[in-house]
Design a protein around this nucleic acid. Structure first.
Lengths: 340, 340
DNA sequence: CTGTTAGCGCGTTCAT
DNA sequence: ATGAACGCGCTAACAG
């Protein structure tokens, strides 16, 4: 592994000249540039990024923490992140947290120990660990919340997301306008603000229509297929089986429909199902899913832009970037069956 | 940001002692250990991983290169990789290549420049760039092929995958046994061995049944939904519309079914559709998908294990780890309609 | 424009 | 068991 020193020696210049060439080839004399280029070719030299990063005190890595890499919505957000990251030669490091939630302090340690320059939280749960007392002068690490605010503690962090309350309210209203009154809600991960917000929107719409959801109509689904299956079952065993089910994401809606079908029910004839996210599966599901579209890719792009501004020194305070959402009506929702 | 020096000063010991404590807390005297621990707590010290890596000459990162992060099959492989990586404190860096294929040399540079300790190629295309002449003594970087062999040039690389030829042959045979004779194949990415292998399996089964596929029955789908849509269209416009379509992955099968439905055809009554991968969507699709199951998670685990062995010095040669596959019959395939 | 020098934080000899 | 000193590869300050 040739180092900058080998190149310098071979080219007959100092290592500083080579270093300058690397930073800006135009900054050295033509004559030397030619020799350096030749030496680089001859030695097969590639700069040691480890050393570069060490010297610069930065990693060029943004860490993305999310509950579930498999969710197509998150995937699309990640794509947006990766796209703008790539332009600026950042890499992104994915960390799937699933249930082992880290505290904010642990995330800070990650940045402080230079594993990453900053952290993007995608709808992940941060337990309510009170920030440890830090020695004075410890700058907090750049942390940006993508998609959703999570625990209340994070509410003051910079974020890029849609207005979940409003979106969930619109979704519920759509069902209401169709004539449904027995509307259930399969929520997300216990304790996440994302869930709280969407549930709040659901409850608000119901309240506005003068309906009080029965006990058992709001059930946790963990944003996963497995969770949604169990939730759907419990809904079907409810004394008042709902005529419409609003799922907090598409993933659950797909599993919900599958489960309904397995129970001999047809969608939307017997039960309407509504999703959230508008992932690429929403349109190909049978029946195609009525859902709330989020601009996933753009959310990712905005998040990473904000992150880079934060890394590169700008204090971005607690800026919150609210992105637009959109109700997409397809075929999984319809008027309730007569008699409902 | 406190450094090891600050801790040493506060504890009244040398930095070497602190360094030893970090490597093995038992290796220093009780008295000193207590003082070091206290000093670490007081300063809020966390080792600078950038410096550690620089010193050790390794990144602790494995780079995963794949064409499409959104594909649930790859996602599951990545999960397997990440799982075993995490146990050994490796991180994984995802690089989506889409169409901008890198040459093997460029991958080598990535490792040589210490962006990563090794590279895992997941069904990505490597263009046929002849390896650049390297100065003597340049060790080749650890590269492992997960899932599929890609270009013929990579055939000699260590790999973890199923027997794609055999699997595709079984899939096709299943259709044949049902009574189909007009069987089409929507293949993957042009130029990838993965495609070649599955196509070879398809052709072998057809040949064995004494059928020669018509021109236009084998059409590229790029492994994406968009590609599959177009491919399905072209199949429907074929003078001899097939009675069964074998898709090289589930993603395409799902889009294919959706497209068929949009054209007023029903699956499997009018046309049978067969997938490949058995992702988690396969079971919830309507109708549930007949497909070939690959042990995605295990493929990921094996791949990462192999990678770690390679990084940690063992020469693993061109070891190939063939994993088992399984035909999963669900409801998207059936006997052809009468008259076919 | 170029070379010399210092030092980033850590692991690792060598002494002691 | 511990401390002093060196160097990993590179960039940045300064002097020329």
């Amino acid at each position: 592994m040739p180092s900058i020193k080998d190149v310098a020696k071979l080219a007959g210049v100092s290592i500083a000249t080579v270093s300058r060439y690397l930073a800006d080839p135009e900054s050295i004399r033509n004559k030397n540039r030619a020799r350096v280029e030749q030496a680089i070719a001859d030695t097969g030299y590639a700069p040691n990024i480890l050393a570069q990063n060490f010297r610069r005190g930065r990693t060029g890595i943004a860490m993305v923490v999310l509950p579930n890499v498999g969710d197509p919505f998150f995937t699309e957000v990640m794509r947006g992140i990766a796209e703008v990251a790539g332009e600026k030669h950042y890499s992104i490091l994915i960390r799937e947290t699933e249930m082992n939630t880290l505290s904010l302090d642990e995330y800070s340690d990650i940045v402080l120990s230079k594993q990453a320059d900053g952290i993007i939280l995608l709808a992940s749960i941060c337990p309510v660990t009170p920030p440890r007392d830090r020695p004075s002068g410890a700058r907090s690490a750049p942390i940006i919340v993508g998609c959703e605010n999570v625990t209340p503690e994070l509410a003051r962090l910079p974020a890029v997301r849609i207005d979940n309350v409003a979106a969930a309210r619109e979704a519920t209203s759509h069902l209401l306008e169709l004539g449904h009154r027995k509307i259930a809600f399969i929520s997300g991960v216990e304790g996440s603000e994302l869930t709280v917000d969407r549930e709040r929107g659901y409850l608000a719409a119901m309240a506005q229509a003068g309906i009080e959801p029965l006990d058992g109509w709001v059930v946790g689904g963990n944003l996963t297929m497995e969770g949604a299956r169990a939730a759907t079952h419990s809904l079907l065993e409810h004394p008042q089986v709902p005529s419409a089910i609003f799922c907090a994401n598409d993933e659950m809606a797909i599993a919900c429909i599958s489960e309904l079908r397995a129970s001999g029910l047809s969608v939307p004839t017997d039960i309407s199902v509504m999703g959230f996210d508008d992932t690429r599966y929403a349109a190909v599901t049978q029946p195609p899913l009525t859902t709330i579209a989020q601009p996933a890719h753009e959310i990712g792009e905005h998040t990473m832009h904000m992150m880079m501004r934060a890394i590169e020194g700008g204090d971005i305070g607690a800026e919150v970037d609210i992105m637009p959402h959109r109700l997409v009506i397809r075929e999984s929702t319809a008027k309730p069956a007569a008699g409902e």
